[in-house]
Each structure stands twice: as structure tokens, then as C-alpha cells.
Amino acid sequence: MTLYPAGPRLALREVESEDTEDLLAIYGDPEATRHLSFEPRTREQVQAITARSIASASVTPRTE
């Protein structure tokens, strides 16, 4: 797991396949997405987002 610089309350890391359920809790929630630029996502859409994020993290040079 790659970790990035962190502060006392925040640590950044790469997305992992195990994050799908946690991302679904946000991306799939109508209240959480109410003011975002997209409608709530389905489980399948979030799985695709997770897979795409994992794949893009391994591209050299990294573009995302």
C-alpha cells in the first residue's frame, strides 16, 4: 500500500478493491450526492470506478 504525506487528521492512500463498499456508502447515497455533479451511483458503477482508479494508479506516467 502506497501512503502519501499525512497530517495529524488525514492520511492519503491509493484506492483498493476493498474500498468499494465504503465508496458505495457515499456515491450511492442520494443525500451525499445531492449537491454533486452526478446522481447516486449503483454498486456496479462504483465497482467500475474502483477498478478504473486502481488501473490508472499503475500507469506510467501517471495521468490521474
Rank of each mutant, 00 (worst) to 15 (best):
Y4M: 02
Y4V: 03
P5H: 03
A6Y: 07
P8G: 13
P8R: 09
R9A: 11
R9K: 08
R9Q: 14
L10S: 10
A11R: 07
L12K: 00
E16W: 09
E16A: 04
E18S: 14
D19H: 07
T20D: 05
T20S: 01
D22L: 06
L23G: 04
L23D: 10
L24F: 08
L24P: 08
L24M: 08
A25C: 04
I26F: 04
I26Y: 05
Y27A: 11
D29Q: 03
D29M: 09
P30E: 02
P30H: 05
E31C: 08
E31W: 05
A32I: 07
R34C: 11
R34F: 03
L36H: 07
S37I: 15
S37W: 14
P40K: 02
R41Y: 08
R43P: 02
R43V: 03
E44Y: 04
Q45S: 09
Q45R: 12
V46G: 04
V46D: 01
V46K: 02
A48T: 15
A48S: 13
A48H: 14
I49K: 08
R52A: 08
S53H: 02
S53T: 10
I54T: 05
A55Y: 02
S56P: 00
S56A: 01
S56Q: 04
A57D: 12
V59Y: 12
V59P: 00
T60A: 07
P61D: 13
R62D: 10
R62E: 09
R62K: 02
T63C: 13
